[in-house]
């Protein structure tokens, strides 16, 4: 897949993380993380399972509190923000969960309407319906509007999950393992969708994955997380040309076996 030209504004930081630490009991998951994400940039955080990748984006979204460090998102310090301030900030952050996290008790339409009806009460019924249809069209699943989440395939659920976040027109997208558990073709479609979302809405994204194809297709920059710290940063080619033995087996497993 050919990557389209992107405009990354290197003067505008949307996420800035400094010296981030997080432990669960005696398990020190993040040990002094530093990360910058610029306007229009897709940053891929690579790493094995259990290295704290999901913890990192949950801290960015304010779902977890760090033990130490600063997390600045769109000019707001997440560690010091009030609950109402955090709610306002979350309206500008889209979070695509690993499990899609669609509400089982609601149809696709209701899933998409939920954030809109609760946070944009001034909208008319017609405007809400139009926004839902537009978001579904963006992910190519208009025909599923009246279906239940249980009736959808894994790939469709991921797409609907992304559509639910797009409906609020976020400035930042956080993807947690977007291709996990999907077949190669569906994974490729999701990768294309991530790039389309970036092009259409000019979002900045953090993509958490251990799928190197996804990383290569979607990322402008890679950051490799090992033992709670970033050990490599740069373009896909730079990271894997570094000769770091810890990354070699990771690369070999994804592309050779």
């Amino acid at each position: 897949m050919e990557k389209k030209e992107k405009h990354i504004d290197r003067t505008k930081l949307v996420i800035s993380i400094r010296d981030l630490h997080k432990s669960f009991g005696t398990n020190h998951v993040l040990r002094g993380i530093d990360l910058d994400v610029y306007q229009g940039e897709n940053v891929v955080v690579l790493g094995r399972s259990g290295t704290g990748k999901s913890v990192l984006i949950k801290i960015i979204a304010g779902l977890l509190k760090p033990d130490k460090g600063s997390v600045n998102v769109l000019g707001n310090e997440v560690t010091a923000i009030s609950y109402s301030g955090l709610e306002q900030l979350r309206l500008r952050i889209g979070f695509s969960f690993q499990s899609s996290a669609l509400y089982d008790s609601m149809t696709v339409r209701e899933n998409l309407e939920f954030p809109l009806l609760r946070n944009s009460k001034h909208l008319s019924r017609k405007q809400v319906t139009e926004a839902v249809e537009k978001a579904l069209e963006a992910v190519g699943l208009s025909q599923t509007i009246n279906q239940w989440p249980a009736e959808l395939s894994g790939g469709q659920r991921k797409r609907i999950g992304i559509a639910r976040t797009l409906i609020m027109q976020p400035a930042i997208m956080l993807y947690d393992e977007p291709t996990a558990g999907l077949d190669p073709i569906t994974s490729m479609e999701i990768n294309e969708l991530i790039n389309e979302v970036q092009q259409l809405f000019n979002t900045s994204s953090i993509i958490i994955t251990h799928d190197l194809t996804c990383a290569k297709e979607t990322g402008d920059r890679m950051a490799v997380l090992l033992d709670g710290q970033f050990v490599q940063e740069g373009s896909f080619e730079d990271v894997f040309a570094s000769g770091d033995e810890r990354l070699k087996s990771f690369y070999d497993y994804n592309f050779i076996t």
């Binding site: 996290a101 509400y103 008790s105 939920f114 639910r164």
Partner: peptide, 21 residues
């Protein structure tokens, strides 16, 4: 069971990031 399954499938987190308490 309902809240439990919502919790383990991250639906409660999804609600939280949708700016809903």
């Amino acid at each position: 069971a309902e809240l439990g399954s919502m919790k383990v499938t991250e639906q409660i987190d999804a609600m939280e990031v949708s700016a809903t308490n």
